[in-house]
């Protein structure tokens, strides 16, 4: 049993270090939240994507980037707390 405990501890450690690590209990909301955060950050970081979007909506790139990061706060909705 000690092994299992250590596994769990190690997992928690990894999870705090590396964002987005999942386990069998990862919920859909958690998963999608993580994917969407990756997507928005990618759109803010890749100049081409940010420019493409900003031309489409006719606003300065700087504001588009801010909106992408704003959306990373809660991209999917609240996640249910694990028991």
């Amino acid at each position: 049993m000690a092994d299992k405990l250590r596994d769990k501890q190690q997992y928690e450690l990894m999870k705090s270090k590396h964002i987005g690590i999942g386990d069998p209990d990862t919920s859909k909301a958690e998963w999608i939240t993580n994917v969407k955060r990756d997507t928005y950050s990618s759109m803010a970081a890749h100049h081409g994507l940010a420019e493409y979007y900003s031309i489409g909506v006719n606003e300065p790139m700087q504001l588009s980037k801010m909106k992408f990061i704003d959306k990373m706060v809660q991209p999917y909705g609240p996640i249910e707390k694990r028991k």
Partner: peptide, 12 residues
């Protein structure tokens, strides 16, 4: 900065 921790489990 923004701390999104408080919005993990609560709606905005």
């Amino acid at each position: 900065e923004i701390d999104y921790g408080q919005f993990e489990f609560n709606g905005i």
